[in-house]
Design a protein around this nucleic acid. Structure first.
Lengths: 164, 164
DNA sequence: TATTGTTATACTCTATAACTATA
DNA sequence: TATAGTTATAGAGTATAACAATA
């Protein structure tokens, strides 16, 4: 579900226009650009990396297992991601002494500083949208998007996939 | 999105919650699943392939150049995609006699039949959302998402990238 | 035997450079 | 020389299988 942000030819979009998923895909391109401008480029962070930092910032410490689920990332890919973050000195891994198989991921001092900085910066990302969307509209949009996400989860679970 | 048998941990999402882009990304996962269920799996079509069919259905004939822009697909990747669609007998390529460098992509009889079928099926995709979102909410959501997309376009052009 | 995390690997997507054939 | 489309290829993203350490 890709979409162009260009305008020139104005092709008919036909049935696509009635697909909310098509609009979501197009809006995602827009917000990705917004993220890149405010956070991704200046801090050399991809969205997952930013999300990982924010999750650790909000939760103190998490196991790779928890992160894997929260970020919707298969375990092997999370390992690679954590290796990179650790290489940049932003996170560290501590073995759990009670059960030495498992670990806790947590922010280093540098990582915590960066995470705090990013968290403060985050509301500003949406300032760019403020010219076109009022605070009320933004709140409404957030609520509707949550309904979309939850409706899919409800169906997912109804199909026999409890939990997530 | 890995399955687990443990109870949902309900991690704090912190700053992520205030990022509309984060919600859009999550909603996109939901609508992708919806698309897969209604269209992708039953017809063995990926979202781009479906979009290409819908664009040709709505526009009669398009040049690869136009499709490349509309689908936000680099030219080489569009070539591969069109090869696949042509291999399945859904589209054909006709050389422009006036300028033999360029082509027109159009639906075959089979492709047109499928496209018509898909176009009729499309509104039903959102029926699954209907349990959670009223028609009015869906319309509102569509409008707000368009504003998000357009706000990014406005900024993009303001930065000195007029059209294409 | 089951679980946590890792290694190795493969498959798809996406992006870029170089080529062809026309103009 | 410039343009439309193709070929070849490289790089990221994503997924699965097999393994090591621990329980």
């Amino acid at each position: 579900m890709t979409a162009s942000k260009h305008k020139k030819p104005a092709l008919a979009e036909g049935a696509l226009q009635s697909l909310i998923g098509y609009r979501i895909a197009k809006a995602r391109i827009a917000t990705q650009a917004l993220f890149a401008r405010h956070i991704g480029s200046p801090f050399s962070l991809r969205p997952v990396e930013y999300s990982l930092l924010m999750l650790l910032h909000a939760n103190e410490a998490l196991t790779p297992k928890q992160l894997s689920r929260a970020l919707a990332l298969p375990a092997p890919n999370l390992t690679i991601l954590m290796d990179r973050m650790q290489g940049r000195g932003l996170i560290e891994r501590v073995r759990n002494q009670a059960d030495r198989r498992s670990q806790q991921a947590l922010l280093t001092t540098d990582g915590a500083t960066l995470a705090r900085q990013l968290a403060e910066l985050t509301p500003g990302v949406e300032k760019d949208l403020g010219e076109h969307l009022s605070p009320g509209e933004l709140a409404m949009l957030a609520e509707l998007l949550d309904k979309v996400s939850n409706s899919a989860r409800a169906r997912h679970e109804a199909d026999g996939n409890p939990d997530e």
